[in-house]
Structures are given as C-alpha cells and as structure tokens.
C-alpha cells in the first residue's frame, strides 16, 4: 500500500493558519507525525491561497525536505505552482493531479511527459463526473494511453476513479469498487489511488464508512490511498486488508506492523 499523508492541506483550518503565519514548527510536526505513522508521500496543498499558492508550496516543500527528507505529493492543478515546486523538490515527487479535462490535461502533461515523476490521474473529463464503472474505465483508458504515449511509465501512474458520496446515490460505492477491479485487472502494473472522505459526506460516523470503504477497495485491488496516516485504526485496517487480499507474502508486513506496535490503540 502506497500511503499519501493528506494532512498538510490548507483547507484544514489549523494548517491554513500555520501556513499564513509562517509557522514552520507546526507544519514540520504534522509532516513528521505522518512519516512516523507510515506515509510514503507527504501531500502539500496551499490551494486556498489563490495568489500566494506558488510561494507557500515552495516554502513547505523546502521546509519538509530540508528537515525530514520526505518525498512530497505536489497537490495543485496549476502548472506554474508545480513547476516552481519541482525546481526545489529533491527526489521523485508525485504530481497530484492530472485529469482528462482538456485544459488541465494540456497544462499538466508537459510537466510529467518523459519524466520519472509519479502522477495521480483523476477520472474526470469535460463531460462531467463519471457515474458508472464504464464511465470510469473509458476515462482511465484514455488517461493511461495518453500518458504512456508521452513516455510516462505505467508503474508511475496512479488512477483515481473518483469517489462520490454514497449519501446521494446508493450505487456510487459499487460503481467505484468495480472500476478499481476493472482498472487493476485491465492494465497490470498501473496503480489505483483515492481519497476516502467523499464516500461518507453527509452521513454520521464517517470514520466507520471511510475505513469500511478502504477495506472493500483494497479487496478489489486498490494499492494507494490519500489518507490520514496518523489514524492508527485506519492504518492497521489497511495493513490487515492487504494481507487478507493476498498481497503480503508470508504475512510479513502484517507481522512487522504487529511487532512495531501498530496494532495497539
């Protein structure tokens, strides 16, 4: 499981305030906590600051990398923000994200074409939000082929089939899950990734729904998550699910996590 720590997002109040106040201590603490909890990438988002996004993202990337060495997921649809961040980023960053929306596709593609960058590719097109599994597979196919033709390696592509709130349509969960299965079986080597909070929007006790959905998606083949890694119960469920789905030889990761105390909460 490839874990992108989602907490450094400016739309979260405490993070937004820390960015605005140049409170590097807080930002670093959140990055450190996520790394210790098992994050592979630290997502960096300053999207709520319309005019200062570029400056803030650059500052956060420098701060995090200088002090922790972590690899970042650069979370912006703005090519200028991404290019600026890539200038200072060391190692192979993840780009979050490209989509099939023409304007966004044309803007982001030149940044990743022919590079070894990881890229999250969102199943969204100018025709609107996908509803069915088939809608998602059509968009995923175009994204995967388009990226591969532009010399992006299949194993660097993370398809996000787009999670929508189950509260508004009971079919949204199953259509997403079946899309994961279709993508993972149709394009061996590609990754799938998603955030979880959309699924539970508008319902009480969201953690339960988010965690249950993650477990179901892992059973279908999902191998990446944009998630709060500091949530120990969530992280434990991800590890157990991968083991149960047959992706943990000799239950090694499960036992490592057990010995590291990751199941104690």
């Amino acid at each position: 499981m490839i874990v992108v720590g989602e907490l450094l997002n400016a739309s979260r109040k405490a993070v937004g305030a820390a960015i605005e106040a140049s409170d590097g201590g807080y930002i670093l603490q959140v990055a450190q906590d996520q790394l210790e909890a098992g994050a592979d990438y630290i997502d960096v988002n300053a999207g709520t600051f319309i005019d200062k996004e570029r400056e803030y993202v650059e500052w956060m990337v420098r701060l995090i990398q200088d002090n922790t060495g972590a690899v970042c997921s650069l979370d912006s649809p703005d090519p200028e923000v991404l290019n600026q961040a890539l200038k200072v980023h060391k190692g192979t960053a993840m780009i979050n994200s490209i989509s099939l929306e023409k304007e966004r596709y044309d803007a982001i593609l030149p940044i990743i074409a022919g590079t070894d960058l990881k890229v999250i590719a969102l199943c969204m097109s100018d025709e609107g939000m996908p509803v069915t599994k088939e809608d998602r597979l059509i968009i995923a196919d175009k994204l995967i082929n388009g990226l591969c033709r532009n010399n992006v390696k299949l194993e660097n592509i993370f398809i996000d089939p787009l999670v929508q709130p189950i509260a508004t349509d009971q079919s949204y969960g199953a259509e997403f899950l079946n899309a994961i299965e279709g993508i993972m079986s149709g394009y061996p080597g590609v990754h799938t990734i998603c955030g979880l909070s959309n699924i539970s929007h508008g319902l009480p006790n969201r953690k339960l729904l988010n965690m249950s959905f993650a477990i179901m998606a892992i059973a279908k083949g999902l191998d990446g998550l944009i998630v709060n890694p500091v949530d120990k119960q969530m992280m434990a469920s991800l590890i157990a699910s991968e083991t149960l789905a047959g992706r943990d030889e000799y239950c090694e990761k499960y036992l490592d996590a057990y010995r590291a105390g990751r199941f104690e909460f």
Partner: peptide, 10 residues
C-alpha cells in the same frame, strides 16, 4: 441540526 442526514432529505 444534524438530526437527519442527506439520504433522508433526498
């Protein structure tokens, strides 16, 4: 007031 939820409104 969070007494009922989106599916119930729908």
């Amino acid at each position: 007031n969070n007494e009922i939820f989106i599916p119930e409104v729908l």
